[in-house]
C-alpha cells in the first residue's frame, strides 16, 4: 500500500519544472504584436455582416454559371495559352535551375566564392514574388505570353535551383571522390557522380514547379501576361460574373487534374 499511497509526491522523483520565463515572455510578445498589428489596420469583421447583402446580386450571378460560354473558341485558346506558358516556363526554368544548382552547392561549386555569389543571387531572385516579375516584364515587353514565360522562368529558378542545390548538398560524396580519383574533371563529376544521385528529386521538383506555374500563370494573366488570367480579368472588368464563375469552375477542374497527374508522377519518382 505504501507504494501507491503517496502518488502526488513520489519520493526521490523530480518534480515537473515550472514553464520557463522565456517562454511566457515570448508568448506575451507574440500576443502584443498581434494586437498592435490588428489595431494599426483597424481590423474589423463588420463588413462581413453589414455589406454582405450588397454582394447578393454578384453572388446570384456567380451561382448561375454560363456554361455555354466555355464552348467559345477564345476560352479554349486562353486555357491552352496558359498551359503552353506553364510548359515553356517549366522547361526553361528547370534547365537553368539545374545549372545554377550545381553552382549553388558546396559539393559541386568550383570554389567558395562562386558558391556564395550564386546563393546570394538566388535568394535575391526569390525575394521578388511571381507577380512582381510579371509586372516588370509586361512593363518592358508589353502584354502577351512572352513576359509571362519570362516571369515564370525567374520564379522557377528561385524555387528549383534552391531545392536542387540543397539536394546536392546532401548527396553521398563517395562517387564524386571516385570520379575525381579516376581523373575526371569537374563537369564530368557533375554529370556522372552528382546528377544521377539527384535526378529523381530534380525531376520531382520540375513537376512541382509545373504545378506552381499553372496556378501562377493565372495571376500573371491578370497583370497582362497572357493566358486564362487575362481573359478572367477582362470578364471581371465587364462585370460578367456568370461567365467568370463558369471559367473558375473549369479552372478548378483543370488545375485539379493537372495537379493529380503531376503528383502521381512525382510519387513514382521518389
Amino acid at each position: 500500500m505504501s507504494l501507491v499511497a503517496d502518488v502526488s509526491t513520489p519520493a526521490g522523483r523530480p518534480r515537473k519544472p515550472p514553464p520557463s520565463p522565456a517562454l511566457l515572455i515570448g508568448l506575451a510578445v507574440v500576443l502584443a504584436i498581434t494586437l498592435w498589428a490588428g489595431l494599426s489596420i483597424e481590423f474589423t469583421l463588420a463588413p462581413l455582416f453589414t455589406d454582405l447583402t450588397r454582394g447578393k446580386v454578384i453572388i446570384d450571378q456567380f451561382l448561375r454559371p454560363e456554361w455555354d460560354f466555355l464552348l467559345r473558341p477564345a476560352v479554349a485558346a486562353a486555357f491552352l495559352e496558359t498551359l503552353y506558358i506553364a510548359i515553356l516556363a517549366s522547361l526553361g526554368g528547370c534547365i537553368l535551375a539545374l545549372l545554377l544548382a550545381m553552382l549553388a552547392s558546396k559539393v559541386s561549386a568550383p570554389n567558395t566564392l562562386v558558391y556564395r555569389i550564386t546563393r546570394g543571387v538566388l535568394s535575391l531572385v526569390r525575394s521578388l514574388p511571381d507577380v512582381a516579375y510579371g509586372l516588370l516584364f509586361v512593363a518592358v515587353l508589353g502584354t502577351g505570353a512572352l513576359p509571362g514565360v519570362l516571369a515564370l522562368i525567374m520564379f522557377n529558378i528561385g524555387v528549383a535551383a534552391k531545392l536542387t542545390g540543397e539536394t546536392i548538398d546532401s548527396i553521398d560524396p563517395g562517387p564524386v571522390e571516385a570520379v575525381e580519383a579516376a581523373g575526371g574533371n569537374r563537369l564530368q563529376r557533375a554529370r556522372w557522380a552528382i546528377f544521377p544521385q539527384v535526378a529523381p528529386n530534380y525531376l520531382s521538383y520540375c513537376f512541382y514547379v509545373f504545378e506552381l506555374n499553372i496556378r501562377a500563370s493565372l495571376v500573371l494573366g491578370i497583370v497582362g501576361a497572357g493566358g486564362i488570367g487575362t481573359l478572367l480579368y477582362t470578364l471581371l472588368a465587364r462585370f460578367e460574373y456568370s461567365q467568370v464563375s463558369a471559367i473558375v469552375v473549369l479552372l478548378f477542374v483543370v488545375v485539379f487534374i493537372l495537379d493529380q497527374l503531376s503528383r502521381a508522377l512525382r510519387r513514382r519518382l521518389s
Binding site: D172, G174, P175, E177, A178, E180, A181, A182, G183, G184, N185, W192, A193, P196, Q197, A199, P200
Partner: peptide, 21 residues
Amino acid sequence: LRALRARIGMIFQSFNLVTRT
C-alpha cells in the same frame, strides 16, 4: 594531377558507386 590520376586506379571502403545507375 588529372593526367596522373588517370594512371592510378582507386577503390574505397564504401565502394563509392553511383548506385542509381
